[in-house]
């Protein structure tokens, strides 16, 4: 009996190791795929930096107009950090512009994904993590360095903020992937996802805290958004963590809420994918 258990445990262990290797190999390929588009990376980093100046001056003007120099509870330095880290995170979580799955469904190329012995959701997720890793190096650092040069940015004071920010960043990437996957997967039913994609682009910018920090809203609205929608978990939470907008317990609570949303979103992706495969029509001959 013990030998059976030992054999079973070894098999599970080997399977986990091999699955992990497959996942990391796909992640590595995701990194390499995005690394081939150097000019696009450069153009993206430049654009985000230019818009960073615009957003930063607008938010600083808002803070200056208040009596205490605080806007939504952020001081000037925190607002500068919020903007410049946000400009970098925008590309890391890839809020906009990902239509790969929808395009492959529309053209029928999704058939090639289904013919591989890996779960399509995990395969796309692994690729996305590779892409996000590339974006951390090429799209997050340039705006942050620009902000540090031209503005008085807030630097975290608490040691716990570092690991919490890393955790929050990873969770934001996972949550945003989940949202994007669900919007793209609408193509299984609609064939053309321009409508959902426009709704996502407009909604996510406002509700994730890109256009203005969600703490500018009344408390009830901000809490409702955090609890009832995944949007604040995509951008606002990691930014609030890095600028230490809240005490450590609240910081950790927000990150835990992100984790809940990640579990819910990835479970929804798996479920939607399974349903889609049952009714799937592969386009084209």
């Amino acid at each position: 009996m013990d030998s059976v258990n030992a054999t079973g445990a070894r098999w599970v262990h080997q399977n986990v190791v091999v699955s992990f290797r497959t996942f990391t190999a796909i992640t590595g390929s995701g990194f390499r795929r995005y690394a081939t588009y150097r000019q696009a990376t450069l153009a993206g980093a430049f654009t985000n930096t230019v818009f960073g100046f615009l957003r930063c001056y607008v938010l600083l003007a808002v803070a200056d107009a208040t009596a205490q120099g605080l806007a939504g509870g952020y001081d000037r330095a925190q607002l500068a950090t919020f903007v410049w880290v946000g400009q970098g995170l925008l590309a890391v979580v890839l809020l906009w512009g990902w239509t790969e799955l929808a395009d492959r469904i529309r053209t029928g190329d999704v058939a090639a994904d289904l013919l591989r012995p890996v779960n399509p959701v995990l395969s796309y997720l692994a690729t996305d993590l590779g892409r996000a890793g590339h974006a951390v190096l090429t799209r997050l650092i340039p705006p942050v360095v620009t902000g540090l040069i031209f503005f008085d940015m807030y630097l975290p004071q608490r040691w716990v903020t570092g690991p919490l920010f890393v955790a929050s960043l990873v969770l934001a990437v996972l949550a945003c992937f989940g949202c994007r996957y669900l919007v793209n997967a609408a193509a299984y039913w609609l064939h053309d996802v321009r409508g959902p994609m426009i709704a996502w682009t407009l909604g996510s910018g406002v509700l994730a805290g890109l256009y203005f920090p969600l703490r500018f809203l009344p408390d009830w609205a901000a809490v409702a958004l955090w609890v009832a929608t995944p949007f604040p978990s995509l951008l606002q939470t990691p930014l609030d963590v890095v600028v230490e907008r809240d005490p450590p317990a609240t910081q950790a609570g927000l990150v835990a809420l992100q984790a809940v949303w990640v579990v819910l979103l990835l479970a929804a992706c798996g479920r939607v994918q399974r349903r889609a495969e049952r009714k799937l029509v592969i386009q084209g001959g």
């Binding site: 190999a25 796909i26 390929s29 390499r32 995005y34 588009y37």
Partner: peptide, 23 residues
């Protein structure tokens, strides 16, 4: 009429990735 290779990767990388995917 459709590809199972990765558009952005060289064949060498695609083949290596397939080794991992198919174990």
């Amino acid at each position: 009429q459709r590809s199972q290779l990765w558009w952005d990767l060289p064949l060498r990388d695609s083949f290596d990735l397939l080794r991992h995917i198919y174990r």
